[in-house]
Design a protein around this nucleic acid. Sequence first.
DNA 1: AATATAACCGACCGATTGGTTTGTGGCAAG
DNA 2: CTTGCCACAAACCAATCGGTCGGTTATATT
Lengths: 194, 194
Amino acid sequence: MSDAEQTRQKILDVSADEIHKNGFNATSLSVILEKCEISKGALYYHFTNKIELGYAVFEEIYVPMFLGMWEPALSVKDPIEGLCDFFNTVSNEMICDEAVCGCPLNNLCQEMANVDEGFRQRILNMQEQLNDLISSSLQKISNQLRNNIDYSQVSYFIVASFNGSMNLSRSSRNKELFQKVIAELCHYIKALKK
Amino acid sequence: MSDAEQTRQKILDVSADEIHKNGFNATSLSVILEKCEISKGALYYHFTNKIELGYAVFEEIYVPMFLGMWEPALSVKDPIEGLCDFFNTVSNEMICDEAVCGCPLNNLCQEMANVDEGFRQRILNMQEQLNDLISSSLQKISNQLRNNIDYSQVSYFIVASFNGSMNLSRSSRNKELFQKVIAELCHYIKALKK
DNA sequence: AATATAACCGACCGATTGGTTTGTGGCAAG
DNA sequence: CTTGCCACAAACCAATCGGTCGGTTATATT
């Protein structure tokens, strides 16, 4: 990787971290510059403006990370078990000492989807991708599941509930509460089976 | 109501609206002053600073509005039906023309719970109040429900899922999607019955 | 050696932010 | 009539924001 690419990557990594912690608007470019130990000129050489930097973080950091988490959970023999394991892992591994930051994509979604059309489109795209992933995984074992299941509806509900749970735990900073809600979510998912 | 009280109330109302639309940090005091047609001196006569204004909006506007929505839904003969009616009403009455703003309390929760301890405490307090409300309402008809129900867990899950659904609809701006997720939530709630 | 370009520096800019301070009209009490 | 306080108005402040721009350095090319 060339020097320039390294700088660009460092900007992306630091920005992803800062945006995750503070949200997009509250993230200051000057803080990013400090942590990267670069000048403003360097940043604006690689990115035309703040929002383009945000898009790049979304596409090059958040989306791969996001899919890298969900995909393995769904591409197992039993996606129902896979999902529950995934949710439980997330809820168990949650760190309570520091401020809980929640899912970066989910956060960005709440903050920016209504403000900026570029973010909104990217978020929508992600949501649809994830929904396809879940619903197709569930359909593969449809013979084991209840009849009359609207797979798209169920998938969106699972994602919505999981996000809602993360938000709850984020604001309450209560790991046990998070685990309880996740337990109920898993209870619901498992009830999809016959 | 005295003149002073009227100005104070107007500040609260306008601020509540602005914070609902833009979030707390993105809400500018100057915009509030314009819409209220008052000067900065007036605002700082009634409130010591921006965050105290935020607390006042939370306590005097959002909380009463919030409880005023949930309570009637739960204080009916069948709270299960009450909840489903409530959720369906919300999803049907949602306005898609303008930017969908979601639940102000939920938004504030995501934005501020990890940033400001004062907001976090107030939010936590609200969440517990709501959870008590739901779980006690469900317990009243426990004879009609399945055995082995963890009422607190179920209540938190309902709230988390509902919030997650609102967030989903907020970012997708898709009323039908919202209604589908709500339908699944109602499906889950009704399955609590024997 | 001269030139060109990529990669970056850092001073500067206008706009806006939350917040302070000084002043002032009106009304009520003495 | 005057004094004093309430309820503001309006100018002002430092800090910070995202963004611009002229200049510099290192490397590659001719």
